[in-house]
């Protein structure tokens, strides 16, 4: 079975320190005012029965990515390794169809004119490293690996803990999982 990269984020450990955001911007030279990952503080319920979840969000690297399907030039594509969704900037025309197609609003137009987003730091992963956000997390709330490998840490976490994905009803099969 081919590899399928996934990220598992333990919301019980995340404190919203935004180290992941800073690490991503530094690692990927993300321009000022733009972000490939961000923090969401989600409060649900009614007082006094409230539930708060702090999440580090990013492109969900969907197994069925609408951004790839809607891209007219093939710039948005699924990488051979790990099923990561990438953008070939030389092919991108900046039509923004992928931005409109993404239920997670995870994409933005880079000031140079092409669609940009999280790549799971594939350039680091191909060197055997974790994505920058995972590597710097001070609470170790983020785990990265091949979900198709039953011995991987991400696969074990998903079989041992309760989890959810974002906007599962969109049917895009996200590869970012949140432990609850």
């Amino acid at each position: 079975m081919s590899s399928r990269y996934a990220m598992v984020i333990d919301t019980a450990k995340c404190v919203g320190c935004m180290d992941c955001v800073v690490a991503c911007k530094t690692e990927n030279n993300v321009p000022e005012g733009y972000n490939r990952d961000w923090i969401v503080q989600d409060v649900r319920g009614t007082w006094p029965t409230l539930h708060m979840e702090i999440r580090s969000e990013r492109c969900n690297q969907c197994d069925e990515p609408p951004c790839v399907e809607t891209c007219p030039t093939g710039a948005s594509h699924v990488h051979d390794r790990g099923g990561v969704v990438l953008v070939t900037k030389e092919l991108c025309v900046g039509c923004k169809a992928c931005i409109a197609a993404c239920p997670y609003d995870a994409r933005f137009i880079h000031p140079d004119g092409y669609a940009d987003k999280c790549t799971f730091c594939i350039h680091r992963v191909e060197q055997g490293l974790d994505p920058a956000c995972v590597a710097v997390c001070p609470t170790r709330c983020m785990t990265f690996g091949d979900i198709n490998d039953p011995n991987s840490q991400v696969a074990k976490l998903l079989t041992s803990r309760k989890w959810h994905t974002l906007k599962a009803e969109a049917g895009t099969k996200p590869s970012v999982y949140y432990l609850t």
Binding site: E69, C71, P72, G74, E90, V93, C95, Y114
Partner: peptide, 26 residues
Amino acid sequence: LDLEYKVHVWRFYTTFKFTSPMSWGA
């Protein structure tokens, strides 16, 4: 004018994406 990468406009005609309405439109 809406395209953010205007010099790449010809890229619309280097491929045909069956699943992309914008490709169909082009």
